[in-house]
Amino acid sequence: MARRILVLSLLAITCANLALAFEPSPLQDFCVADPSGSVRVNGFACMDPKLAQASHFSFSGLHVAGNTENPLGSRVTPVTVAQIPGLNTLGVSLARIDYAPWGVVPPHVHPRATEILTIIEGSLEVGFVTSNPENRLITKVLQKGDVFVFPIGLVHFQRNVGHGNAFSISALSSQNPGVITIANAVFGSNPAIAADILAKAFQVDKSVVDQLQTKF
């Protein structure tokens, strides 16, 4: 009986450790990122806390609209550990997203973060796709003040369906959430994925793949 309790206890501890293994809680007040540090860790090494200044914990400019004059009609202004070194080890980040009328943030994934998006101005159609084999689209049109969650690792998108500009603020559960835009990754990899592989994957003629690869 005692052995069984011990085994269950060890299993519980192991599960707890696995749950905390993804951006675990920091063991100090803060760990300001030191990109110049020679130590390579999963994240950034910490600078001497005695050197920390308010500037390491702040960012200015989130009120400024991003330039949406591009083929997608959208612009993301990130606020990650790259912009705020004090975010290092804290497991959170932000992004402002601006949308021209009918502008889109194309299908993409954040490999390291769940995203919660709040509409500040305008109307957005948003959605994500569940994993195989269901591949079910969950979508909704949001209005000012509405909130929507994109689960970690799932393909998702946003589109401005209003007549004017729109913008939203996203909070993400990682200091460095990463982004993989599906079209860029598939058709714009360097070196390129073999066209015959993509032609078979998308069930299209190789000439279509060749044309797409020239765009990315």
Rank of each mutant, 00 (worst) to 15 (best):
A2N: 10
A2R: 09
R3P: 00
R3W: 01
R4V: 10
I5Q: 10
V7M: 07
V7Q: 06
L8V: 09
L10R: 10
L11G: 08
I13W: 02
T14R: 06
L20C: 02
A21L: 02
F22I: 13
E23T: 12
E23P: 02
E23S: 14
L27Q: 08
L27C: 05
D29P: 00
F30A: 14
C31Y: 05
V32H: 01
G37V: 06
V39W: 04
R40M: 11
A45V: 03
A45K: 06
M47D: 06
A54E: 12
A54R: 11
F57R: 09
S58G: 05
F59H: 14
F59N: 08
G61W: 06
L62H: 07
A65G: 12
E69D: 15
N70P: 01
N70T: 11
N70I: 13
P71R: 07
L72R: 10
L72I: 10
S74I: 13
R75T: 11
V79Y: 03
V81N: 07
A82T: 11
A82E: 14
I84F: 09
I84Q: 04
G86R: 08
G86S: 06
T89W: 00
L90F: 02
I97T: 15
D98A: 08
D98G: 04
Y99K: 06
A100W: 03
A100D: 09
A100Q: 09
P101W: 07
P101V: 14
G103I: 12
V105N: 15
P106I: 11
P107L: 11
H108M: 13
V109N: 04
H110R: 10
A113G: 10
T114K: 03
T114Y: 00
T114W: 03
E115S: 06
E115C: 02
E115A: 04
I116P: 04
L117H: 03
T118G: 00
T118N: 00
I119Y: 03
I120F: 00
G122Y: 04
L124Q: 09
L124I: 13
E125M: 14
G127R: 09
V129F: 10
V129Y: 03
N132D: 10
P133H: 02
N135L: 15
N135H: 12
R136Q: 14
L137D: 06
L137W: 07
I138G: 01
K140S: 13
K140C: 05
V141I: 15
V141P: 00
L142N: 09
G145S: 08
D146E: 12
V147H: 02
V147C: 05
V147Y: 02
F148L: 09
V149W: 02
L154K: 07
H156C: 13
F157D: 11
Q158P: 11
N160M: 10
N160W: 01
V161Y: 00
V161D: 00
G162I: 12
G164H: 05
F167P: 02
S168W: 05
I169G: 00
S170L: 10
A171S: 15
L172C: 08
S173N: 15
Q175F: 04
Q175C: 04
N176P: 03
P177C: 08
V186E: 08
V186K: 04
G188R: 05
P191V: 10
P191R: 07
I193R: 01
I193C: 01
I193T: 00
A194Q: 15
I197T: 14
I197R: 06
I197W: 04
I197A: 11
F202M: 12
K206G: 06
K206Y: 05
S207L: 12
S207Q: 13
T214L: 14
T214F: 04
K215G: 02
F216M: 15
F216S: 10
